[in-house]
Every structure is written in structure tokens, then in C-alpha cells.
Simulated scan of single mutants.
Amino acid sequence: MSVENGKNVLVVYYSHDESTKSIAESIAGETNADLLELKPVEKSGGRKVKYIWEGESVSMDPVPDLEPFLLDPDSYDLIFIGSPVWAMSYAPPVESFIRKTKLSNKNIALFCTHEGLMGIVFQELMSKLSENKIVGAIDFYDPIGSGVKYAANASANWARQVLKSLS
């Protein structure tokens, strides 16, 4: 369990490609946080089924099973939650995490990555996490395409500000 400024910090994320993962790793590095990558259980059908699921999953509202995780999110004071934007919403594995953990009375900071419109990602997440205190939210437009170093610096600066606001 990591401790930064007296806070136990966790970064939870789902990443379809390297974009959200790169931001999550930058935030974790800056805040000395533990990382929890959300991994859907692989269904039969391999890659083809995976791409169909990713393309249609938001509108069909599935809640995919996740591989078990060893970290207990309830034991953290501050949780960063990150997702790519899919169909102007957050990715279904994040919904699975929210339903499974039933977080309450936590400091939550939200981040998303996208290459188009951001949609209503934060509004939806804030509604789902209403029993918590949202301490920050930021989006990153095309972190890989716009420059990994720039995105890493921006996410590290933001994470530092979030921690400072809790001091």
C-alpha cells in the first residue's frame, strides 16, 4: 500500500490501448500510488469478439466480468479512476469496478482519454459515485498522439494538485 502526504493512493484504470495506461502510470508515479488495471475476463472468440464487444458495449450496457484483483480499494483514502471515452461515455469495465466495489466516503479523482468528443463521462461517473467526494476531474485528448512526454507532465501536475488540495 502506498502512502503520499499521509494518504493511501490508488490509481484504477481500464485501457484499450496505451493512452489511458500511460496517464495512469504517470499519476501513480507522481503520487507514489498503487496501480490497479481493470482486465475483463477473456470471453471465447478471441480478438474478433473483443473488438465487437468494445464497439457496441456502451450502448448495450453490459457489465463485463473482471479478472480478480488483489488490492482492496476500500483501504485507500484517494482513488484516481481512469477510462477511455467510448461512445461519449466511460468503458464498461469501469462500470463493473464501480458495481463490484460499491465505494463510499472516498476522495475520488477522475480522468479520461479520448480522440474525439468527451461526451458526458464525468457527469455519469459523478452520478455513479455520488456517495464519494469528487476532488478533481480532467480529460486528456490523444495523449499518445499529442506527445507522451507532454501528457505525462500534464497528468503528473494535475495529480500533484489533487494531492495538495487534500492536505
Rank of each mutant, 00 (worst) to 15 (best):
I81W: 05
A156S: 14
D72V: 10
S19K: 02
V49W: 06
D74A: 10
V148L: 15
K106M: 02
G45K: 06
L70E: 11
S15Y: 02
W53M: 15
E124W: 01
K21E: 14
M1Y: 03
S57H: 05
K133C: 00
I144S: 06
D72N: 14
N105V: 03
K50E: 14
A24E: 05
K133V: 02
E37L: 02
G6Y: 15
M126W: 02
Y76R: 11
D17L: 03
V148K: 15
I134N: 01
E54Q: 08
D139G: 15
L70Q: 14
V121S: 05
A24V: 03
V135T: 12
N107F: 01
E25S: 08
N132E: 02
S2R: 09
S75H: 05
F97I: 08
K106H: 03
Y150Q: 14
R160P: 00
V9H: 06
V58I: 05
K7E: 00
S75R: 14
I52Q: 06
A33C: 11
G145C: 03
K39P: 12
K43M: 04
Y76N: 13
L117R: 08
G145P: 02
C112P: 00
K39C: 04
Y141L: 14
G116M: 01
V85G: 04
S155R: 04
H16A: 11
S96G: 09
S89T: 13
P62E: 11
I23M: 04
P62Y: 09
I138Q: 13
R47T: 08
E4C: 11
A159R: 05
Y14P: 01
Y76G: 13
W86L: 14
E115V: 01
E37H: 00
Y90Q: 07
E131H: 02
A33R: 12
V85K: 09
A137N: 09
S19F: 01
D142P: 02
S89E: 12
E115A: 08
E42W: 12
E42F: 07
F80L: 10
K128V: 01
S26Q: 05
L10V: 12
A152W: 05
Y13W: 08
A151V: 12
V121K: 07
A154D: 10
K149S: 15
A28T: 09
E42S: 14
Y90S: 10
N132L: 04
F97M: 01
S44L: 14
N105K: 13
S104D: 04
K102F: 01
Y76M: 14
G29S: 12
A137W: 05
F111R: 01
V3L: 15
L38H: 15
N8Q: 14
V11E: 06
Y76I: 04
E67L: 09
I98V: 09
K43E: 04
K21Q: 13
L117P: 03
E67W: 03
K100C: 03
G46P: 14
L117A: 04
E95H: 11
D142Y: 04
S22M: 07
S57F: 06
K7P: 10
M126C: 11
L117D: 05
D139P: 03
E67S: 08
I120D: 08
E56P: 00
L103I: 15
